[in-house]
Computed example of a mutant assay.
Amino acid sequence: MNLFRSLGATIGISVLGAVLNTRVSNGLETLINQNIEFKPILSENIQQIITSKGVLPQGTYNQIVTLFVDGIHAVFLTSCGLLLVSLVVAFFAGKGKLSNKEHLESRN
C-alpha cells in the first residue's frame, strides 16, 4: 500500500512541477521578448530577481509575480482535474477486500 502512495506522490509532484515550470517558462519567454533590454537580468536566477525588488521596474516585477501566481493557479486546476478523475475511478472500482499477511499465513 505504501508503494502506491509513494508512486502516486512521485508522479503527482512530477506532473504538477512540469505544469508549473511550463507555465512560468512560457510566460518568461514572452516577457523577455516584450522587454529585450531586461533580457540579461531575466535570464538569470529567477529566485534572486524575486527576492531583490529593486533590480527591475515595478511593472516588470509585478508581471513576474503574476506569472508565478498564474502557474500556481494552473497547478491547482490540474490537481482538481486529477482529483475528479480519481473520484470517478474510486467510485466505479467497487468494494474490494485487501487481505493482510497474517490472514494468509493462518490459512496455510
Rank of each mutant, 00 (worst) to 15 (best):
106 S>M: 13
86 S>L: 14
53 K>F: 11
93 A>I: 03
25 S>C: 13
25 S>M: 15
5 R>I: 06
75 V>L: 05
64 I>K: 08
58 Q>Y: 05
46 I>V: 15
43 S>I: 08
77 L>E: 02
86 S>W: 13
46 I>A: 05
96 G>L: 07
31 L>I: 13
44 E>Y: 06
20 L>I: 06
44 E>H: 09
71 G>R: 07
45 N>A: 09
72 I>S: 02
14 S>E: 13
59 G>E: 10
58 Q>C: 04
1 M>Q: 09
41 I>R: 08
54 G>W: 08
64 I>S: 02
27 G>V: 04
36 I>A: 12
8 G>C: 11
86 S>Y: 10
64 I>Y: 08
36 I>P: 02
87 L>A: 07
69 V>H: 05
19 V>N: 03
5 R>S: 06
15 V>K: 09
94 G>Q: 09
29 E>A: 12
77 L>Y: 01
67 L>E: 00
78 T>I: 07
34 Q>V: 13
59 G>K: 12
106 S>W: 00
38 F>L: 14
60 T>M: 07
8 G>A: 11
39 K>S: 01
22 T>H: 13
81 G>M: 05
17 G>I: 03
26 N>E: 14
92 F>E: 10
79 S>A: 15
19 V>A: 01
94 G>W: 12
48 Q>W: 09
10 T>P: 08
13 I>V: 10
66 T>P: 03
76 F>L: 13
92 F>Y: 15
73 H>W: 08
6 S>R: 12
78 T>W: 02
14 S>V: 08
62 N>D: 12
55 V>L: 06
8 G>R: 12
62 N>V: 06
52 S>A: 10
28 L>V: 05
84 L>A: 09
49 I>P: 01
104 L>P: 06
12 G>W: 03
32 I>Q: 00
3 L>A: 08
8 G>Q: 05
11 I>S: 13
39 K>N: 00
15 V>C: 13
58 Q>V: 07
25 S>L: 14
53 K>D: 04
16 L>S: 07
11 I>T: 12
102 E>V: 11
32 I>A: 02
77 L>T: 01
96 G>N: 04
90 A>C: 11
